[in-house]
């Protein structure tokens, strides 16, 4: 009887072990088939322009000290088609066009490295956008629906960030006669800029009336009824326009 019980437990242990091994291999195999990678490198001039339109997923763009663009994409199943085009100084990736007519396309998460002085124009239908260490002529980040936009260490003449639901964070310099536009429907917009920046400001937060200028509050700023702040810092050579329909706007000294 004892021997039979021993045999039964040994058999049960072996079965559990075998099932575990099988489960591990199956899940690994499924994982491999669910995630596909894409990697490509393009030689690029210093002032190359990156134009990316993603469907869903996170996009991260980083500036680096090389004259080439490195694109890495991690695709969830069903994997998207990616066909980057290199046309006269512009690297164009358009996942909306490349996958038009496909019912199901998984998230695509990009990690792209560009020369420091590149112009970056990225958009996605949904997902986060991160851009850092870029000092080209343009940085534009557009999310059609929801996702956070984080722009760090940016030194560009023209910056635009737009989303519907999500936070926007900008950390960078304000170039004289530059143009900076930040628009959200619901989320927090935080701008971290040097104190000696010179700009004209139109900041509008009509619903919350939560506009905090921090150290930039001066006698040249008119608060009106609190829904909009109009004013100037320094000689006002650049233009900053911030609109947040149902969220807050904050300025932080860099």
């Amino acid at each position: 009887m004892n021997w039979n019980l021993k045999k039964f437990f040994t058999f049960r242990k072996a079965t559990i072990f075998l099932l575990t091994v099988v489960f591990f291999f199956v899940s690994s195999a499924m994982g491999i088939s669910a995630q596909k990678n894409f990697a490509r490198t393009y030689p690029a001039s210093k002032n190359v322009r990156l134009q990316l339109t993603n469907r869903t997923g996170t996009v991260t763009v980083e500036g680096w000290d090389k004259e080439e663009i490195s694109i890495s994409a991690f695709m969830e199943a069903p994997a998207a088609n990616i066909e980057p085009r290199s046309l006269s100084g512009t690297i164009d990736i358009n996942l909306v066009k490349d996958n038009q007519g496909r019912n199901e396309v998984g998230n695509v998460n990009f990690l792209i490295k560009v020369p420091f002085s590149s112009s970056v124009d990225i958009e996605t239908r949904m997902g986060n956008l991160n851009v850092s260490n870029v000092r080209g002529g343009l940085v534009r980040a557009h999310i059609s629906s929801e996702g956070d936009i984080t722009l760090t260490n940016i030194n560009a003449d023209n910056v635009a960030a737009e989303n519907v639901i999500g936070d926007i964070f900008f950390d960078g310099t304000i170039a004289s006669s530059g143009n900076y536009r930040f628009t959200s429907t619901r989320g927090n917009i935080n701008l971290r800029i040097p104190f000696n920046s010179s700009f004209r400001l139109i900041a509008t937060a009509p619903s919350t009336r939560n506009i905090s200028l921090g150290d930039f509050a001066n006698s040249g700023m008119r608060f009106g009824d609190g829904r909009r702040v109009v004013g100037q810092n320094g000689d006002g050579s650049a233009t900053i326009s911030v609109t947040n329909q149902r969220g807050s706007i904050s300025f932080i000294r860099r």
């Binding site: 019912n103 199901e104 929801e146 519907v164 429907t185 619901r186």
Partner: peptide
Amino acid sequence: RNWNNYLREAFDRNLNEIDQV
């Protein structure tokens, strides 16, 4: 109708947000 649930829900959420505004 071709979108997945995840995308449909996100779209509706954002549209609703704008409609409220």
